[in-house]
Simulated assay, not measured.
Amino acid sequence: MRALRPLCAALVLLAGPVWAEDLPTIRAAVLKIGTVNWELATITENGLDEKHGFELDVQPYADNGATRIAVEGGEADMAVADWIWVARQRAAGKDYVFIPYSRAVGGVVVPEDSAAGTLRDLAGGKIGIAGGPLDKSWLILRAYAQQQYGIDLKAETEQVYGAPPLIFKSALSDEYAGAINFWHFLAKMKASGMKELISVEEAGQALGLDTDTPLLGYYFKESFLSEHPDLAQGFFEASREAKEMLAGSDAAWDAIRPRMNAKTDAQFDQLKADWIAGIPARGPVDAAAADRMLALMAKLGGAELVGEATSVPEGLFADVK
């Protein structure tokens, strides 16, 4: 039992006749080194789970595929994914429901001494890409380059696909004209002196997308949430309170710094700044804006990316406020 839990349990008793041991448990399947652990640790270490009517049990896994198997097989109740993937699963018949977590997205960075000023200047060079040819950042940046400069980045550059850590290390060794990586690796790359050429947010805005739409979120089985009618809102409240703590408290960041794998103060500061910048506005997801984004993803990535989800499935986004 965590040190703060006796106090939190006492507060629960003062608020009403609910005993801590009666609280539902959410088993969260997470990537062992995933950045979502920063928020979840803030929730558990400050007793925000019990404050909002549940007990959070964080279960680490080696890779994202294992977290998805855990939820599907009933070994866990929740995992993290982008809503486009969740929409694909729901369209295929799974009862997954999405609760917003972050709008943090990637971008393109170039070496510190690069003369590139736009994506057009990467033509003829190598681009390192984490996530594969259907990476959503890569697809959006390709669409942006086509719109703005009339070039097909896929045809005009050589793509090198690899795991995020490999792209990170190779980019720092100046092996690429530009690199696309997950947001936290990009933060470390920028802290090491690389320059952001363009963010996916900027490219998305130019394409007419609502970049306030949170891309990443927690997904649950709808059947699980139906068994606990107030659980979705309670979890959302705990998540929002953790975000508020991290947005306004240096002490909250000091508490999770050992989890962040920040090698330098510069990396720590950049990770902190970019995480805070990714906090979405409170409120329900704009389904119409999400539908426009999904239509673009379907156009760019086809069924291989979105499956049968050609529009946002009804009930995809949890009713949280």
Rank of each mutant, 00 (worst) to 15 (best):
A145K: 01
Q148I: 05
Q148T: 13
L153M: 09
E156W: 07
E156P: 03
E158Q: 03
Q159P: 09
Y161I: 07
G162P: 08
P164N: 04
P165R: 10
L166I: 08
F168A: 01
F168D: 00
K169G: 10
Y176I: 00
A177M: 13
A177K: 01
G178L: 01
G178K: 00
A179H: 01
A179L: 07
A179Y: 00
I180L: 01
H184E: 11
H184A: 12
F185I: 08
A187H: 03
K188I: 14
K190V: 15
S192H: 05
G193Q: 15
M194A: 14
K195G: 06
E196R: 15
L197I: 11
L197E: 09
V200L: 13
E201W: 08
G204E: 06
A206T: 10
G208D: 05
G208L: 15
T213K: 10
L215Q: 08
L216K: 09
G217W: 02
Y218E: 11
Y219P: 02
K221I: 02
K221A: 06
F224V: 04
F224P: 06
S226F: 12
L231I: 05
A232C: 11
A232V: 14
G234V: 01
F235A: 04
S239L: 14
A242H: 00
E244D: 12
M245F: 10
A247W: 07
S249G: 03
A251T: 13
W253T: 01
D254N: 09
I256Q: 03
